[in-house]
């Protein structure tokens, strides 16, 4: 039994770690001066410790907003977020964040980029160098310690970003579409790498994506969000045992879950529009392009 599955059991049995991340009736409205954008209308969910939860939805539906609120980087408009029993007030070091862009510092080497959190947190560097090297080894970047980010491919940069998020050993990892800027082949590789990492360092994770396949491949649960103002319309458990490989994508069960999710997103859960799915995705793209 892996830790992840243990976390899942804990969630079912309602143990002490059953609500490690707890989001209660959270809403978010952006005030841009001229208009107000209701990004998230009402979201509630909870995550057990050690669980990997994917948040799936069309772009522009407020996934990043939700994640940033969980990270303490955006204030909530209403509702509460509780993490490890403590109400969220601001950023904390038990949370690591990963973005779509690797956000590496171009003037630092791979090793120094990975040690960047240690510098910010003013922890003794010597205690973390071995860990950094081990992480580099694990993600397959051995030999690249002294390279600069611009000498790396997009996939390699995201591997560095993963190491940087893991170096200070946060309990929670929040990932905002970390692989969506990568090409399809690299993305598959990164999914494999992440599955592998997950096997070793079990963390509690929220993973935002708009790829159905990625969500099902990686997660223990998939939360499906609708278009703005968004809520979670369904909480889909993913039953595949760990350790997983991307071979599960060939199974009938996998295809069935994917098509179920696709149906959920496309029909926008009966929002009373003619073709809400297409409209929602198109609108999402427009929002993305305008920003």
């Amino acid at each position: 039994m892996t830790d992840a599955a243990g976390g899942f059991d804990a969630a079912l049995s309602g143990g002490p770690d059953a609500a490690f991340i707890r989001v209660d009736d959270v809403a978010k409205t952006y005030d841009t001066g001229r208009t107000t954008i209701e990004a998230i209308s009402n979201v509630s969910f909870q995550t057990a410790k050690g669980q990997f939860v994917a948040i799936l939805g069309p772009s522009g539906c407020g996934k990043s907003t939700l994640l940033m609120m969980c990270a303490g980087l955006e204030p909530v408009t209403s509702g509460t977020i509780t993490i490890a029993g403590q109400p969220m007030t601001g950023p904390r070091t038990s949370i690591g964040v990963m973005f779509q862009d690797s956000t590496l510092l171009p003037w630092k080497s791979v090793l120094e980029n990975i040690l960047f959190p240690i510098r910010i947190l003013r922890r003794p560097r010597s205690e973390y160098i071995d860990r950094a090297r081990a992480l580099i080894e694990m993600v397959g970047l051995a030999g690249f310690e002294d390279k600069r980010p611009h000498e790396l491919s997009g996939g390699m940069r995201q591997r560095v970003a993963i190491c940087r998020a893991l170096i200070y050993d946060p309990d929670i990892l929040l990932m905002d579409e970390p692989f969506s800027a990568l090409d399809a082949i690299t993305r598959d590789e990164m999914n494999d790498a992440l599955l592998d990492i997950w096997q070793r360092y079990t963390k509690t994770a929220l993973f935002v994506t708009h790829s159905i396949r990625e969500a099902v491949l990686l997660a223990d649960r998939v939360l499906v969000m609708t278009d703005r103002p968004s809520t979670i319309i369904e909480d889909v458990p993913i039953p595949f045992v760990r350790p997983r490989t991307n071979e599960i994508a060939e199974t009938v069960e996998f295809v069935r879950i994917c098509s179920h999710l696709r149906g959920l997103i496309q029909h926008g859960h009966g929002r009373g529009q003619d073709k809400p799915g297409v409209a929602a995705i198109f609108q999402g793209n427009k929002v993305e392009a305008a920003r």
């Binding site: 980087l73 950023p91 973005f99 862009d101 956000t103």
Partner: peptide, 10 residues
């Protein structure tokens, strides 16, 4: 996002 990274590291 880089600023956010810094803030997330307090």
């Amino acid at each position: 996002e880089t600023i956010r990274l810094c803030r997330s590291l307090t």
